[in-house]
Amino acid sequence: MQHLIGSGRFSFLLAVMTLFILPAWACADEPAYSVGLGFEFASGKYGTGIRTDSIYMPFTATVYPTERLDFSLEIPFVYQSSSAVVAGQYMGMQGQSGMQSVVAAMNGMGSSGSMTSASAGSVNNSHSGLGDIKLKAGYVLYTEEKYVPAIRPNVYVKIPTADKNKFLGTGEFDEGFAVELTKWFGSWFADGEAGYVIQGKSSVIAVKNYLNYYAGAGYQLTERLRPMVLLKGTTPTVNGAASQLEARLRVKYQFAKHTGIDGYLAKGITTASPEYGMGLAVFYEF
């Protein structure tokens, strides 16, 4: 029954994305595309007595049927050094909001943790494999004006392709929606997003629906170089866990006409966040 419910939600989100995409695609003369390959590393104890190192490597393909509309597919490879966390909540490096940190799905060793279904004898085992595939659609509803920011709502669905028995995912469909605001002030800019994620009920960890957000500011240092600082976090993603919050220094550099890099360094602020992390992605636009 739960599988049918998840499939029904997936079909609904897919239909919403289709309503976004098809009308604009029909009017587009020549869609633009981009592909990217990313690498992200995060490390932390997440309130437990076990340090977990996580690697996330997403391949992302994005199509822009119009200047306002984008539609992306993310296929990731995931590695984690223990089963104390569930590596199920990431956002792709190519996305405006950057990558989500590993879910603080505790194994019960910390006072605020929620237990995964890993046994004490296997919690230190490392696992790797295909992560959860994600589909995302965004649309610039309102372009920026002198006193008004650009407004871009987006929706996404997570397809449970990761092996839940290896704790690489929750084994359930997730859906989410968010609204991003962007405003330029000369060479300075401000960027922020707030959203809500509906998680499918999982046998791996006691997940709950949550709010996610980020807010930051940056400066167009040169025509090709754009650094920014931001805070990103979520309300608790599992029962009994704390909220997530981390600070990031992010840099985007366009080193060729169609090729650029996007990297960041991260420092966790709350126990549910990784203690530190880093990420780097290379993308090509054509």
Rank of each mutant, 00 (worst) to 15 (best):
P160H: 04
Y219I: 11
V157R: 09
N154K: 08
G129Q: 12
Q100I: 02
L231G: 10
L4R: 00
G108R: 02
D191E: 10
G279K: 05
T143G: 11
I75M: 11
E180T: 13
F167R: 07
E223D: 15
S273D: 12
T182Q: 13
V204I: 15
S126Q: 15
G240C: 15
K134H: 06
P65R: 03
V238Y: 12
E145R: 15
K164Q: 13
G277L: 03
D191P: 02
G98A: 06
S83V: 01
T60C: 03
P149S: 10
M115V: 08
H258L: 12
G113S: 09
L225P: 03
G233N: 08
S117M: 11
I55S: 03
L13R: 00
Y46S: 02
Q94S: 05
G200E: 04
S43I: 00
Y90K: 01
K158G: 02
T52H: 06
G192R: 11
A281F: 02
L231H: 07
R152I: 02
L141K: 00
M106D: 05
K267P: 00
S126L: 12
P76Y: 02
Y276G: 04
F173V: 15
F185R: 04
A266L: 06
N212Y: 05
E223N: 14
A272E: 08
G92V: 00
A256R: 13
F167N: 06
S119Y: 07
F255I: 14
M109H: 09
M99G: 00
A217D: 08
A215Y: 04
Y142T: 06
T237W: 07
Y46A: 07
S114E: 10
V155H: 03
Q244L: 04
Y253Q: 05
Y264W: 11
H3G: 09
G176R: 11
L230C: 04
Y156W: 15
Y264N: 10
F12N: 14
I159C: 01
N239L: 12
S112Y: 13
A190P: 04
A266E: 01
L130Y: 11
E193V: 06
V197C: 14
N154V: 03
L37T: 04
D174Y: 10
Q94T: 06
A241W: 00
F12K: 10
P31K: 10
W188F: 15
M228K: 14
T170N: 11
Y213C: 02
R250S: 06
I269A: 05
S202F: 05
L245K: 10
